[in-house]
């Protein structure tokens, strides 16, 4: 139990995540992917007569149950299977982020950026709202996210997914190296 409560190394977590793919295939012929759930939420709640949201989302409702499961899993892992503590990132990254204006390193996310009090500051708005919008818009435009393209797509040898994954990384590098230092100073 003590071992479970420590953070899991990549060579345990990665293969376990990989097994989600055959689990979903064999349990119900479902292909692993999470960003579709955002589309189903739109189709269910705010279709607004847009063609893209005119389909039978109830047939895809497994994806919403999957997403709900992730929320519950996040709760269980944090409240029952963890000991509180810093994320042990590379000290070089921590130093760099400190220089760029991040102050809180006590949790999974820096609370001096991601909190309700920060939401109404320019920096908080950019990180919480604008960032989320780009994630939702970009994944749907790309036809998938890290799960649907990088893991499901590449592992089933689909080259468009490899292209998309490379573009995810390029976008991330551009943001991290060229733009983020300025956003952190807002």
């Amino acid at each position: 139990m003590e071992y479970i409560k420590q953070p899991w190394p990549w060579y345990i977590a990665g293969p376990l995540i990989g097994l989600v793919v055959p689990a979903l295939l064999l349990l119900g012929n479902k292909t692993f992917g999470i960003s579709s759930s955002l589309r189903h939420i739109c189709a269910a709640c705010i279709p607004a007569n847009i063609n893209f949201f005119k389909y039978d989302w109830k047939k895809e409702s497994w994806n919403l149950f999957f997403a709900l499961g992730i929320i519950l899993g996040g709760f269980i892992a944090t409240d029952l299977l963890s000991v509180p503590g810093n994320v042990h990132i590379n000290p070089a990254t921590a130093n760099l982020l400190r220089q760029q204006g991040v102050k809180d390193f006590t949790g999974l996310l820096p609370k001096d950026i991601f909190s309700f009090t920060q939401l109404f500051t320019l920096r908080g708005f950019v990180f919480i709202v604008v960032g989320g919008f780009l994630v939702g818009f970009g994944t749907r435009y790309a036809g998938g996210c890290t799960s649907g393209h990088a893991i499901m797509g590449i592992s089933s040898l689909q080259w468009p997914s490899l292209v998309a994954t490379c573009c995810f990384m390029i976008g991330g590098f551009i943001m991290t190296w060229l733009i983020l230092p300025f956003l952190l100073q807002l």
């Binding site: 604008v130 919008f133 970009g138 790309a142 590098f173 551009i174 943001m175 983020l180």
Partner: peptide
């Protein structure tokens, strides 16, 4: 796949989360 992928990448580096982790962070 290219344009959307780049846009998602920009957002991923800001939020530090793709859609799956967003749900898990809420649960956390």
């Amino acid at each position: 796949n290219v344009y959307g992928g780049l846009i998602f990448g920009l957002g991923w580096a800001i939020t530090g989360a793709c859609p799956g982790p967003l749900f898990a962070q809420i649960g956390s």
